[in-house]
């Protein structure tokens, strides 16, 4: 397996007069677990759309494993090894869980037989403990299960780098634990993750490295501890005067949190 390497150089994106992403540069080396945070409108989703090919950058380049991926179509980016989820769950609602999983499997391997992909899909289902739902329509799943299904689809796509947009938003604590487990396990298998989340606690616990965006610019890039003490970051969040983010970057064990919330409900 080749070394995972994502290189983003001076990436920018303008919408009319608005600069949504401003000269962002960073690298991902190997199976890192990176969190991306920033206040609302900081450009996180735009950056994801740029990486994924849904948007064409106004400037800058993106290389994935030595291959230039800016300016190519989203499906080509996906095949090149970058997978993503969307902020709002976007499962294929009127298709079965199995079919949902087969789409990326078949799209990636243009010559693979359906049988082989189904076999792989069963492994994914097993991993998600979803076997009993294989022939259910995706629309009949709960919101959290649909999120898991999206993660399952990414496993079928088998990308090197996985970008998860708000994986914990609106998810039941029990499932949150499962998603958490998914991330750590898949990360341990050698996949790089970029997590975008408002859930500071989880992000700070889970990530080994944090990217902080504000007004489209990358204002910090470092370990959670470094970021926590970074004056620009503190200023950015203080400037927001938003209770949710507050001043303190909390240090809470996610498992403890999950248990507490689980008990509460």
């Amino acid at each position: 397996m080749s070394q995972i390497h994502l290189q983003v150089n001076n990436l920018s994106k303008d919408f009319g007069g608005l600069r949504a992403v401003n000269n962002v540069s960073f690298e991902v080396n190997g199976p890192e677990l990176i969190g991306m945070i920033g206040p609302n409108g900081a450009g996180k989703t735009t950056l994801t759309n740029l990486l994924d090919g849904a948007l064409i950058p106004s400037g800058g380049t993106i290389y994935l494993n030595g291959k230039r991926i800016d300016g190519i179509k989203p499906y080509q980016v996906a095949r090149a090894g970058l997978g993503r989820t969307f902020q709002v769950t976007r499962s294929f609602r009127r298709m079965t869980v199995m079919e949902n999983l087969l789409v990326p499997g078949m799209a990636l391997h243009t010559t693979a037989s359906r049988k082989a992909q189904e076999k792989k899909a069963w492994e994914v289902l097993e991993f998600l403990t979803f076997e009993h739902l294989a022939n259910e329509y995706a629309r009949s799943l709960s919101g959290g299960q649909q999120k898991l299904l999206e993660l399952g689809r990414l496993l079928m796509l088998d990308p090197d780098i996985i970008i998860l947009d708000e994986p914990f938003a609106g998810v039941h604590p029990k499932l949150m634990e499962k998603i958490y487990e998914y991330i750590t396990t898949v990360n341990a298998r050698g996949k790089a993750f970029i997590l975008i989340s408002h859930d500071m606690d989880t992000i700070f616990t889970l990530s080994k490295r944090l990217l902080v965006l504000n007004f489209g610019s990358l204002i910090a890039d470092g370990t959670p501890d470094e970021v926590r003490q970074d004056p620009t970051v503190i200023e950015a969040y203080l400037g927001e005067e938003d209770e949710e983010y507050g001043t303190a970057m909390p240090v809470v064990d996610v498992h403890q949190l999950v248990e507490e919330e689980g008990d509460a409900s």
């Binding site: 993503r84 087969l102 789409v103 990636l108 359906r114 689809r153």
Partner: peptide, 25 residues
């Protein structure tokens, strides 16, 4: 029943998501 039908259905459901999963929409 082949990938063709599978991809058509995924396009019907959500074009962008299908593209993000490698389908040449």
């Amino acid at each position: 029943g082949t990938r063709f039908g599978l991809f058509l259905k995924s396009i019907r459901e959500d074009e962008e998501a299908a593209a993000a999963l490698g389908v040449n929409v």
